[in-house]
Amino acid sequence: MGLNPRRDAGTDSDDRASRRRLLGWLSGVGLFGSGILSAFSNFVFIKPRATYGAPQRFTAGKPSDYPDGTRVALEPRRVCIVRDGNKLAAISTTCTHLGCIVGLSETGFACPCHGSRYDQDGTVTGGPAPKPLAWYKVSLAPNGELEIDKDVEVNPGTYLNV
């Protein structure tokens, strides 16, 4: 289209043309690279390093607070404390399907959002849930309280003996 008549007319020496080519390439790579870098930095920026939500590790009272046969949901913590004889465990009440809170039902757990059902141990018995409810690590803190760590999942059926 004749935007640059000098180049079209072929008056440049080969030397000048190749230098111009090189500079063009370098500018292009520089600009494109900066674009990619800044796009990437934006993602780094919006990914928080620290979160402000509830802590994942917390204490939940003494074992004696939960008599034999207890199944009680600590709702703000989204776990259910289960006691069977001398054995204690903490089962997640966050539905593995889409993150709703499952409620306690006669047969175990039931999710109000999409109808997933679990048995007493959190094994899926119906609905769209893809995997069983998580079991979290329970330990005794030095002061005798139960300590639940939601960052550490344990195999279903792993109890703490008290």
């Binding site: 709702e75 703000p76 889409l98 709703c100 809170i101 109000p112 959002c113 999409h114 109808g115 609905g127 769209p128």
Partner: peptide, 22 residues
């Protein structure tokens, strides 16, 4: 945050999606 409504429904234009998700 403790009690999801039952049923918990998305806006109508996403209910087709939610139905498929079930």
């Amino acid at each position: 945050v403790m009690h999801p409504p039952n049923p918990a429904k998305a806006p109508w234009y996403f209910l087709g999606l939610q139905e498929m998700v079930s």
